[in-house]
Write a protein that binds this DNA or RNA. Structure first.
Lengths: 202, 202
DNA sequence: CAACGTTGTGTACCCTCGTACACATGGGAT
DNA sequence: ATCCCATGTGTACGAGGGTACACAACGTTG
């Protein structure tokens, strides 16, 4: 089966190392040499598998995105359940992601935001954004889904930029406003932890 | 006084150059040498005025933040007017900022987001965030203000990351949900001109 | 007026980076 | 078995980076 000296595991190890490096020193600290050292492979190996750093970044971002997807898979079962409170589910999920692996979340965001300046990263960033929107759009309309993603992005950003703690109740409250906005007044079927009618503001 | 050779204008020119450099090549392309070249000053001059690059970044971010403040000053007169539709005002303002000077907006965001990894930048980023929140909080409660800022951040991020156009109607719509959410379960009038009573929760 | 120290400038050093390229290895075709 | 080339590795080179430090200019002070 083909693989004579071809070693896919090596490539994977380099990506893992790249993610660790970015996590530890940021994208600014990423270089062929630093990943090579971290992955314990020769310099030539990194340049062989990834002609340019952008290629490596793309692979890293792609893999990092799996982090959130994994959280969704593990904790997001109720997401698809039409009976569940979508805003509460999302708030809980975001919390699980943020608190469960904060460095990982920071890393994913750094990679994600890097797309701002690196055209090579844009497609994969956009793709991820689209996927999440799609996921949420199964429970509402597309406009609401997009706005929800934007809001989550903003909330996470504030948390990460200020280094503060994630406030799930707050997130739930404001997410509910965006999500329930279009069909306002209609009480939600499931009470959950909070009142279906949000009457108090923080 | 007595500053015959003391030249504050020189320092300012370096900051301006740094902003131009970041705008053109991103933070990754920023170095003492590149700013020196851009500002047409000797290399030693940049290191003299800014011991470290972070210092320069801080100054640049601080000045870049003025960009949005300026837009607020010029186009945000109605912001303070309690009779105006806050969501509409913010949507308009954001559009003016985004479309009026897109490269500038990109640059400000890059600087702003850089705080994620550079502790030195966090205080000034947080400060700016706080200022905007404060500004909006004059028209609503703090929780709503914070959420509004988060949403605007997220929307801008989506626009900038995808390179797409800013949709003011969309922004208005979702901003209204967050802003008007707390006080009423009543459906918003689709005609956005008829501004429903804003008003604070509490 | 002259010496001195603060302020500003120019240069040189050493480091790390990406890239190029010569060299090793081993499976598959003949 | 032998040759070939995709696969993988090690090293050297030029570019550009931050920093250190010697030097120039000028205000101050005795």
């Amino acid at each position: 089966m083909a693989a004579r000296r071809y070693d896919p595991e090596r490539r994977q190890r380099i990506i893992d190392a790249a993610i660790r490096v970015v996590g530890a020193k940021g994208i600014a600290g990423l270089s062929h040499r630093t990943v090579a050292a971290e992955a314990d492979v020769p310099l030539g190996s990194t340049t062989y598998h990834f002609k340019t750093l952008d290629d490596l970044l793309v692979a890293a971002l792609r893999q990092a995105n799996e982090g959130f997807a994994k959280v969704v898979r593990e904790h997001g079962g109720a997401l698809a359940d039409p009976g569940a409170d979508l805003a509460a589910e999302l708030a809980r999920l975001t919390g699980a992601w943020l608190d469960g692996d904060r460095p990982g979340a920071e890393l994913e965001y750094e990679l994600y935001l890097a797309a701002l300046r690196r055209p090579a990263l844009r497609p994969v960033a956009a793709e991820w954004c689209e996927q999440v929107t799609e996921l949420i759009a199964r429970r509402t309309d597309r406009v609401t889904a997009r706005a929800t993603v934007a809001l989550i992005d903003g909330v996470c950003l504030q948390v990460l930029l200020t280094g503060g703690a994630y406030d799930e109740a707050y997130a739930h409250e404001v997410l509910a406003r965006v999500i329930d906005g279009p069909q306002a007044g209609e009480p939600r079927p499931d009470g959950e932890t909070g009142s279906p009618r949000r009457g108090r503001a923080g």
